[in-house]
Design a protein around this nucleic acid. Structure first.
Lengths: 238, 238
DNA sequence: CGTCCCGTTGATCCCTATCAAATGTAGTGG
DNA sequence: CCACTACATTTGATAGGGATCAACGGGACG
């Protein structure tokens, strides 16, 4: 039998906002600790939604695969985020695959407990609704951007968001906190790794970013934000 | 004082699924009837979310405007759908504008009543979560399609969906049940009215659709579905 | 130290946006 | 009932942003 997990693990999270300690303890009582190695999936698209999770440490990406086998990155999961809550929305199967992009630790609960959570404390439903509502707005933003913006704007915006969510201030600049490839960014923005590579090269040239293998550091956030808002880069004539 | 509205107006709707009659009557007791003329907005993007609605009759479209003034159609609202539930997701302002594309009738409740609804009957929260969850999945589908598919597929799929949601069988074929322009379809699929017009012309040529001003009739759904799934149209050589 | 990924860069092509202009259709007011 | 107007649609011509094809370079890890 595992020892009781500390309430402090989840007390500060949005999802457990305004919950009495008793409810938190009750939840932790039945939580399973779930360790994921780099590249390991918490669950796969199409599987029955047997569990839902809270990420404690690490980073995951949520991907959908098209019928043709292309991948699309739906979002990145940061520490403190809930994921795998398909069952809370009355869907019996996971709509996407969620894989760790680095070693990660999550808490997991059986989906069946969801109804218990809610009847024990209706705030769970309210908080879940807020979480899903926020995601819906984010999704609509992406639809708007994919529909109306050019590739450079979208890639710039994606990187700005990543620095907002997972930026780590270093003496060099703002480092994106987890391993991410050109391919990943391409799958977030609806383009190809080639185009992302060219953009990053151009930006490196102009001193906006510095990057390496699975690693991006933002040197000039403001200029990236300008690009994300549609400003045109300085074209060298000729 | 207005007379009590009939329970039958909402009893069958997903959003009120499994609700006891008493709860339905209580809701109807405070509902306002809201009539919208063609082109009139139920609310505008950025306004405080003072009300939420159920559409009884007609059709609305939900649009977001980009900073540059371009429009994107987020979705169409069909009879029986709820809309304007920003407040239920804890957002104080509407994230999009919702306008009638034909004369419409809706029921409206003050947003402040939402908390009453929930505390009176927790099923409201569960049903709302399901509704928003479905929309989130739809949004992710659109992101996947915008990221990976070509324009012809996306337009074909948009039209197939419209016929599923609002198709009316006529002796000619399946008529999309409300006025819709090339521009509208362009704003749903991230393309231009010119490209939509060219596609519809080509499809008309091949006998797949028949269309006129603000009017589309689908003659061969199966072929449209094939196109939506990525099948290539027959190219005339030369 | 070799192999596997990941990243870079050039060359080419094509889908689709853009520009431009004409035609068609509903609605309106005289 | 018809002229007028506003809006929707069609269609041609052109250009360009990015995808695609192709090949090489380079760092990480076993």
């Amino acid at each position: 039998m595992s020892k009781q997990l500390s309430r402090s693990l989840i007390k500060k999270l949005d999802f457990f906002k305004a919950m009495p300690d008793a409810a938190l303890d009750a939840a932790l009582e039945i939580a399973q600790v779930c360790r994921l190695a780099d590249g390991e999936a918490a669950f796969h698209q199409g599987e029955p939604a047997t569990q839902f999770f809270v990420l404690l440490h690490g980073h995951l990406k949520v991907v959908q695969v098209t019928p043709e086998g292309e991948q699309v990155v739906v979002r990145y999961v940061n520490p403190g985020d809930v994921f795998g809550i398909a069952r809370a929305m009355q869907r019996s199967h996971y709509p996407a695959t969620t894989v760790a992009v680095q070693e990660s630790i999550a808490l997991a609960w059986p989906s069946a407990e969801w109804d218990e959570f809610i009847s024990g404390n209706p705030l769970f439903a309210v908080n879940a609704l807020q979480t899903v509502g926020q995601r819906l707005q984010d999704a609509h933003s992406r639809i708007r951007e994919l529909s109306t913006e050019e590739v450079e704007q979208r890639v710039a915006r994606a990187i700005v968001r990543l620095t907002d969510e997972s930026g780590e201030k270093t003496d060099e600049g703002i480092l994106i906190n987890f391993p991410i490839t050109r391919q990943d960014i391409a799958e977030m923005t609806g383009t190809t790794l080639h185009t992302v590579s060219r953009l990053l090269s151009a930006w490196k040239e102009r001193g906006l970013v510095s990057s390496g293998r699975k690693r991006i550091v933002v040197l000039d956030v403001n200029e990236l934000i300008r690009l994300a808002e549609g400003a045109h880069p300085i074209k060298t004539p000729g």
